[in-house]
Amino acid sequence: MGIIGWIVLGLIVGALAKAIMPGKDGGGILVTMLLGVVGAFVGGLIGNWIFGVGIDRFWSLSTWILAVVGSLIVLGVYRAIIGRKSVTRG
């Protein structure tokens, strides 16, 4: 799958991850979609590493599942880091 396919997939699954894990994010939908692009990459790495299946075909169900799982992981890590930074100590 080409770079344009990765970006489109990431933007879509970023929006899906936001719908699955609603909540306040510091950067809004744009940051969530960019995290989706990173998450699609992470999902591809995890799928390749654990299952031997990567993100290589745009219309494959395994591609979409791995990309959504990766996006949820990245979004969760992002929220954990941002949530920790927003806590003030006095």
Rank of each mutant, 00 (worst) to 15 (best):
G2W: 13
I4K: 07
G5K: 08
I7E: 04
I7Y: 07
I7R: 04
I7Q: 03
V8C: 04
G10Y: 02
G10D: 00
L11Q: 03
A17S: 10
A17F: 01
A17H: 01
A19T: 12
A19E: 10
M21Y: 14
G23E: 11
K24F: 13
D25G: 15
G26N: 11
G26H: 11
G27A: 14
I29Y: 15
I29H: 13
L30Q: 12
L30H: 11
V31R: 12
V31M: 13
V31A: 15
T32F: 09
M33E: 07
L34C: 12
L34S: 09
L35I: 08
G36P: 04
V37C: 06
G39F: 05
G39D: 05
G39I: 05
G39H: 05
F41L: 13
F41W: 15
V42L: 14
V42C: 10
G44M: 13
L45A: 14
L45C: 11
I46N: 09
I46S: 10
G47W: 00
N48L: 13
W49E: 11
V53T: 08
V53L: 10
D56G: 09
F58I: 00
W59D: 12
S60M: 12
S62E: 13
T63W: 12
I65P: 01
L66F: 15
L66E: 06
V68S: 04
V68I: 15
V69M: 10
L72N: 02
I73H: 02
V74M: 05
V74T: 09
G76P: 03
G76V: 04
G76L: 06
V77S: 03
V77H: 02
Y78M: 07
R79Y: 06
R79V: 08
R79T: 07
I81A: 00
I81Y: 00
I81N: 00
I82V: 08
I82L: 03
G83F: 12
G83C: 09
R84G: 06
R84E: 02
K85C: 01
S86H: 12
